[in-house]
Design a protein around this nucleic acid. Structure first.
Length: 819
RNA sequence: GCCCGGGUGGUGGAAUCGGUAGACACAAGGGACUUAAAAUCCCUUGGGGGCAACCCCGUGCGGGUUCGACUCCCGCCCCGGGCACCA
């Protein structure tokens, strides 16, 4: 009686052997065919590893293991993104210092990850909280600072009263804090460090085209960068002040009947007539203090006030009133717009409300008389305004009347350019990256302020600037980091003049930690550089990166930016870090996202304990397409376990190697090799697994009785199973008497000859409906198929004596007879 | 509002350069084995009709193109994600 499959025993055994034999450790210096397989390192939460993590990692691990079986030297590292607001908030909640919490969390994660059977090289694990790591995070800040890419500026920031810190725009969800969905975010003005990512907008956008990335991710990045083409036009006041506005519709300038400045616009004061000062001042204060919710997300009822002054429309020469309104944002374009109410929804709404002139300058094309005749539009009840479409011709626009909008954009821009009152202009929505955090749990920003010398970077030899272990790490209302309460820490000598200076007390954004971790992995342990030049040359850029699309814009954009800057500084040979990126899907339970409040969270440990890691891995990969995600159901997992039990049984009674091989089984084998290889390549793991199931079903059907499975068929099955169920495959490999590790075997080769069927089914349709199926040899000619089809009783019944009008023949697939 | 995905049996999901819809699995029902149960193995399983060979209907809804549409086009509905007064 063969022993039954006991996952716990098998997995424990191989975990130990792999560790002893260093099976998962690649030769970091000598690898000949290096392949860098990266997964997104987790934040080590107190709750432990989430199924979402397991799903992500296993999918990446399968890819790495598959590449290894193809003969690559695969480097598969992992680390811990342990700094940041998540850790800190949790520490505050349980009232324990994060430095005491993190090591335990990491230990737990490590244990869980090891049980999952990832091919991780633990020698290269890292944690962003390790001074040996953040020393180099600070070093990167210094590099950017030296290059002029780190600048300090006063800026309105999102302030969360609950977190008591500024938030990145990305951390604000619909005007509420992402951490505290019930807390409105307010505006505050603080002096902060920014990285000048906007300077790289064009390059970040342009490079996207060359990257082998998930389409959805590239689209999101492109939208985030938000490039638009238009013109900057100048409206001049009688006193000679030039007010630049940005517009994407310079063709409509003749319809610009008023001007709007953002409330924060620096020219507001100058533009305000004395009799309007009180009202403007009131509106301004109100708008500036208004929290982000009401301003950006509220009911959006248009508000604004007239400044009492006018500027000259550069096209018409007319004086147009200058208003201020909060629907114009200071942070985009020039912070001022020309309002064309006839051709912009927002301007239209505003003009209607305040009784401003609405002048049509574009008529829809296709009307009976496109030259100013608007009956066509008025026919449907309204006057057709605002008319937003580009599909029109100019009217009321002087010498430009009759031009199409597209033509007019060019012509009018050139015309205004020749009068020095306009030029074409490209705009981006991307903002500079604010990296300052008024928090405790992060790497201190390595700057010292000196009365005499100004901002002085900490000399490299003094890195890292250690984060002191203070007890009162709780942020307060001051808006300053808790470090600002520790004079003994921030009081230091100025490295330049030796006078008493003070350290920057803000720490840096977690996204900075994670923007370069993949550069560090090959070089962990090196204390004389962030990343070793030779190792970087061998391993980077990353060959495959798989992760969630929730990081599509932030982490992935910042990583690209940092890489680009380091490249330009001559520190890296490449300027894009991730050659190939794939976004995996999300896994849901009972059709809903897993969350504690719903009580539908799947804890991986329980399932691994009950079913084993291999079954759990395979089930996660089987429940839906990897790139789309799927629904986790407890009932489904049994099917995978049954499958493994059957393969186990097959490998228990191996037949003689010399035994004759069933031709059909060999054919199925080669079809399976093809299918599984292609599917793994495209990350279609669910269908790869079903192909393996089909093949094992074939094998079982063919090995009934005592004959046993032919090892020449079984061996490739076990190899193909190895990426999915690494411990299980290893044990089967040993059971069928193979030496070494299955993970050092070679992926089976597909032979087309052997995969080809000698009998295939051709469908016979009459008028597009299936009426018969014929078994024929491949390559059969049209005449022969047709002849046989017309002899078929079923077909004859439907053709009857009728005239055949046409036949359609698809080689080896079908023939359609049209009567 | 705009930009991406996606809607297929009782369930998870297969199949899209237009060519056999429902692979694989779950659940369910029946049978074998067993003193019995579990496990295992075998069979059935989209809906409807027929004794049967077979026939009709069927991929969110409504049109269209085609010999032929889950697949392409037009117009909608619903679900998930992203962006959102960006001029």
């Amino acid at each position: 009686m063969p022993i039954s499959y006991d996952p716990e025993m098998v997995e424990l055994k191989w975990r130990q052997r792999w560790a002893e034999r260093r099976t998962n450790c690649v030769d970091i210096y000598g690898a000949e065919r290096p392949y860098y397989n990266l997964m997104m390192f987790p934040y080590p939460s107190a709750e432990g590893l989430h199924v979402g993590n397991v799903f992500a990692f296993v999918g990446s691990d399968i890819h790495g293991r598959y590449r290894r079986l193809q003969g690559w030297d695969v480097f598969e590292p992992i680390g811990f993104d342990a700094f940041g607001i998540h850790s800190e908030n949790y520490a505050l909640k349980v009232n324990t210092h994060p430095a005491n919490l993190i090591p335990a969390n990491i230990a737990r994660f490590r244990e869980q990850l090891q049980r999952t059977g990832l091919m991780v090289n633990w020698d290269h694990a890292l944690a962003t909280t390790d001074p040996a790591y953040y020393k180099w995070t600070q070093w990167i800040f210094l590099k950017l600072y030296e290059a002029g890419h780190a600048v300090k500026k006063e800026a309105p920031v999102n302030w969360c009263p609950e977190c008591k810190t500024v938030l990145a725009n990305e951390q604000v969800v619909d005007g509420y804090c992402e951490r505290h969905p019930g807390t409105r975010v307010h505006q505050r003005y603080l002096s902060q460090w920014f990285f000048t990512i906007t300077k790289f907008a064009e390059r970040l956008l342009e490079n996207l085209k060359t990257l082998d990335w998930s389409e959805s991710t590239r689209t999101m990045q492109a939208n985030w960068i938000g490039r638009s083409e238009g013109a900057e036009l100048i409206f001049e006041t009688p006193s000679g002040t030039r007010i630049p506005v940005y517009t994407t519709r310079p063709d409509t300038v003749f319809g610009a009947t008023y001007l709007v400045l953002a409330p924060e616009h620096p020219l507001v004061e100058e533009m305000t007539a004395s009799e309007q000062q009180a009202e403007v001042g009131r509106y301004r204060r109100q708008a500036i203090q208004k929290d982000v919710v009401t301003r950006k997300v509220g009911d959006r009822e248009k508000t604004g006030v007239f400044t009492g002054t006018y500027a000259r429309n550069p096209a018409t020469g007319e004086a147009v009133p200058i208003w201020i309104a909060d629907y114009v944002l200071m942070e985009y374009g020039t912070g001022a717009i020309m309002a064309v109410p006839a051709h912009d929804e927002r301007d239209y709404e505003f003009a209607e409300k305040f009784g401003l002139e609405i002048r049509r300058v574009v008529a829809p094309t296709g009307g009976p008389d496109p030259m100013g005749e608007t009956d066509q539009v008025e026919a449907d009840g309204a006057d057709g305004l605002p008319f937003i479409s580009w599909d029109g011709v100019l009217v009321n626009s002087g010498q430009f009347d009759g031009m199409s909008c597209a033509e007019a954009v060019v012509a009018i821009t050139e015309w205004l350019d020749s009068q020095a009152s306009g030029k074409s202009q490209v705009q981006y929505r991307l903002h500079d990256w604010c990296i300052s955090r008024q928090r405790y749990w992060g790497p201190p920003i390595p700057i010292i302020y000196c009365e005499k010398c100004g901002n002085v970077p900490v000399p490299e030899r003094d890195l890292p600037v250690l984060l002191p272990e203070i007890d009162d790490f709780r942020p307060d209302e001051s808006g300053l980091s808790p470090l600002a309460r520790h004079e003994e820490w921030y009081r230091v000598e100025c490295p330049q003049c030796g006078d008493l200076g003070s350290r920057e007390t803000d720490v840096s954004d977690t996204f900075l930690d994670s923007s370069w971790y993949y550069l560090r992995y090959p070089s962990t342990g090196k204390d004389d550089c962030a990343f070793d030049a030779e190792l970087s040359r061998r391993w980077l850029p990353v060959d495959s990166y798989i992760g969630g699309n929730e990081h599509a814009v932030l982490h992935l954009m910042y990583s690209r930016y940092i890489t680009m800057v380091l490249h330009d500084l001559g520190l890296l040979e490449f300027d894009e870090p991730f050659t190939r990126f794939r976004a995996h899907g999300t896994i849901v339970k009972d059709g809903a996202k897993m969350s504690k409040s719903r009580g539908n969270v799947v804890v991986p440990d329980e399932y691994i304990a009950k079913w084993g890691a291999d079954t759990f891995r395979m089930y996660l990969m089987f429940l839906g397409p990897y790139l789309e995600g799927g629904d986790f159901r407890d009932e489904g997992i049994a099917g995978i376990r049954r499958f493994l039990d059957r393969v186990w049984a097959l490998s228990a009674r191996v037949g003689p190697a010399s035994g004759a091989m069933d031709r059909a089984a060999v054919r199925k084998l080669h079809q399976t090799i093809k299918k599984v290889s292609d599917d793994i390549e495209g990350l279609h793991y669910n269908t790869a697994i079903s192909a393996l199931m089909e093949f094992s079903n074939t094998l079982r059907a063919g090995s009934s009785g005592d004959a046993g499975a032919n090892p020449q068929l079984l061996r490739p099955l076990i190899i193909m199973l190895a990426p999915f169920a690494p411990h299980f495959a290893e044990e089967c490999w040993e059971r069928i008497g193979r030496g070494g590790s299955v993970h050092d075997a070679s992926w089976p080769t597909f032979e087309e000859e052997l995969a080809r069927a000698d009998q295939i089914e051709v469908v016979v349709q009459v008028n597009g409906r299936v009426r018969a199926r014929l078994r024929v040899s491949p390559g059969i000619s049209q005449e022969e198929v047709l002849g046989r089809a017309l002899n078929d009783d079923g077909v004859r019944r439907f053709v009857g004596g009728r005239q055949i009008r046409k036949t359609i023949h698809v080689q080896d697939r079908l023939v359609n007879i049209v009567v």
